[in-house]
């Protein structure tokens, strides 16, 4: 038993060290963002391999927040991620409820058809979507960035599963009282579905905030870049080695919202992953 405790201590130590290794790249990015640009042009290992931000400056963060397109990119990301989240929640909860509860003709065909969409990856549709949106003149607009994700059936799948799990006597009682579908849906089902919807909302938001391929194709005007895309454009510039601190500051700022969201809603994120993968 004593040996077991020793082994456990070693094991814990290993885990703690590994966790630190895992954190170091993030810490490094943050630290570089807090060092002067002209220092970074010469060296990225000023104090302790650059892990300690000394000399310390907030110039890069202030610069990125105050000028250039970064604030605009932030706004775009917020609009796209927010809009996408709302649209997915609305369409998925409505459809999920119908598939779980309303006996309508054609449902037996429709539901498998919708599930079949789960196997179509983004990469299989982004080229036709591109030409289609070009014909409609949708590119460089928020709608073009939001719409394709609304069509992905994973949200409908999650919500259907969830509504199926709610005992039927609740809505049956309400129906006997004469409540119609809409009232049952908004007054009874939606409040019950709050945990599932929170999870779906967070996963959608994270996806929208971090998506790269589709915005790269659809948004060609820098004013319409999301922060994720804008960050990529900063990276591939020739000027990269001249403005390291600023690029890193953009990276830090781009990550802050998702990191905060994650820390606040960790439980939902974790549950969402388990749910989203069909567990």
């Amino acid at each position: 038993m004593a040996g077991g405790r020793g082994a456990r201590r070693v094991w814990t130590l290993v885990l703690v060290l590994l966790a630190l290794v895992w954190l170091i790249p993030i810490v490094w990015m943050a630290s570089l963002a807090l060092q002067p640009n002209d220092l970074l042009a010469r060296t990225t290992s000023n104090v302790a391999w650059g892990l300690i931000p000394w000399p310390f400056t907030l110039d890069n963060l202030a610069f990125v927040l105050g000028s250039g397109l970064t604030p605009r990119w932030f706004l775009n990301s917020a609009i796209v991620a927010g809009g996408m989240t709302l649209a997915v929640l609305a369409t998925a909860s409505l459809a999920g409820y119908a598939f779980a509860r309303i006996p309508f003709p054609g449902k037996r065909v429709l539901f498998p058809l919708v599930l079949a969409g789960l196997v179509i990856p983004e990469q299989a549709v982004f080229i036709p979507l591109y030409t289609q949106f070009a014909e409609w003149g949708w590119h460089n607009g928020y709608l073009a960035l939001i719409a394709p994700r609304v069509a992905v059936p994973i949200g409908v799948f999650l919500m259907t599963q969830f509504f199926r799990g709610i005992p039927t006597y609740l809505d049956e009682a309400a129906a006997l009282d004469g409540a119609d579908r809409w009232v049952i849906f908004t007054r009874i089902m939606l409040p019950l579905a709050r945990p599932a919807m929170t999870t779906l909302a967070i996963l959608t938001f994270l996806y929208a905030w971090n998506d790269y391929l589709w915005p790269l194709v659809s948004a060609s005007r820098p004013e319409m870049f999301t922060i994720t895309l804008g960050l990529a454009s900063l990276q591939s510039n020739f000027a990269q080695s001249e403005g390291l601190g600023r690029v890193m500051a953009s990276g830090v700022l781009a990550s802050l919202p998702v990191v905060l969201l994650f820390l606040l809603f960790q439980r939902h994120v974790v549950r969402g992953i388990a749910m989203g993968s069909g567990k």
Binding site: D211, Y212, Q235, A254, V259, L261
Partner: peptide, 28 residues
């Protein structure tokens, strides 16, 4: 939480970090 944290970063932040981390001159 530490181990999961990197998962929420976008691919462009991840590449930003690793592009520099792996650099033979400036990298960590």
């Amino acid at each position: 939480t530490f181990f999961f944290l990197s998962q929420v970063l976008s691919v462009t932040v991840v590449t930003l970090i690793w592009q520099l981390t792996l650099s033979p001159r400036q990298g960590l």
